[in-house]
Design a binder for these strands. Structure first.
Lengths: 192, 192
DNA sequence: ACTACATCTTGACAAATGTCAAGATTTTTT
DNA sequence: AAAAAATCTTGACATTTGTCAAGATGTAGT
């Protein structure tokens, strides 16, 4: 299981076997059943989580019981509520497995230690954070500039893989419209 | 003018006079008239920009000529299109001064050099990036969970100062609704 | 194989929002 | 001070979207 993470890191860095050994020693392996959660709102999040296999979602549950999906995390992606982790405040969000998943957790302090100990790991993390900022900025851009139909098409373009793995109501939740509206947009588009 | 930046840094760090001297030597001072731009879409952005005085906006101009505001940057805030800077690709955005403003520009390479040379400056930048990620995540959260009225009230709570300095249609643009709808939301709220 | 549950679509209607236009008010420029 | 421009509100109407409900289809668990 660590092999997957190792391969991922190998693509982006040139770490030594010693580095890998250190990293592996700090990884907590977790196997998740479908629908199993790793974060519940109200709890403080303390890890960096890497998805080796499967698919998770981070979402907000509003007072009406409606789910608002902040992020999908498929294999080779990171997840976790950075806000809660950085502030030590209870999270607003839930994270759970949409599919049976294998994940690696690295405890906050261990992760910081790795960044300080392995310069190249630190560079890699900085790169990842930069990409994350770009992704977030891009999502804000689409949310204020695109129509619902455009948001859906954009989602398909951006995440074709995820689109084929999750039910439509989750896509609707991610782009911020109701499931019924999405259904109608799809049938409209099909007519053209 | 550098004094303002120095005071800002002094609040968040404990840098030496030598550090400040190095930083100052790399700062490009720019005075902006109202409506003057510092970034036009199509250009590549290459700086980190700190606002000493005034107020800027970063926005996207769609095909219909409509403005979609991604960010307001008042004094003591940073602005710039990080995506363009990190990728060296042309920016989608424009940045210009809403009020007469004084800003400091630090060239991308110089900024990286400062991070490598002054560890405490680097820590401070990392903190700033973390906060930025939190802000972006928060904005996505509000954009998919709140109604238009709630988005407006949230804006007032989050940015009371900016709310009193910009015209309503810019707030509408920022939260992603039309100026007319915002006007109606306000008159509705006033009745209560 | 059967049952229970989730998913997806569709209809009907209400509510929210956008668009276009006009006019009042305020601010800025000359 | 006068003219020009920007801001804000409001009306009328079309369009989009949400909500509730029903039913069809597909999927998962026992």
């Amino acid at each position: 299981m660590f092999e997957i993470f190792r391969k991922y890191l190998g693509d982006k860095t040139t770490l030594s076997n010693q580095d890998y050994a250190l990293i592996e020693s700090l990884c907590i392996i977790k196997k998740l059943r479908k629908n199993q959660y790793i974060l519940q709102s109200g709890d403080v999040w303390k890890y960096d989580a890497f998805v080796c296999r499967g698919l998770l979602k981070m979402y907000y549950l509003d007072v009406k019981g409606q789910e608002h999906i902040m992020q999908f995390a498929p294999e080779n992606y990171w997840t976790g509520d950075r806000e809660s982790m950085d502030t030590d405040l209870p999270s607003k969000y839930n994270i759970d497995a949409i599919e049976p998943s294998d994940i690696l957790l690295i405890e906050k302090n261990d992760f910081e230690m790795l960044r300080k100990t392995i310069p190249e790991f630190n560079n890699f993390v900085n790169q990842t954070i930069k990409k994350n900022v770009q992704t977030l900025q891009g999502r804000i851009h689409t949310s204020i500039t695109l129509s619902s139909e455009e948001k859906y098409n954009n989602f398909l373009k951006q995440f074709p893989d995820i689109a084929s793995r999750v039910p439509l109501h989750m896509i609707a939740s991610y782009i911020g419209i109701s499931a019924e509206t999405l259904s109608r947009i799809r049938s409209q588009s099909a007519k053209k």
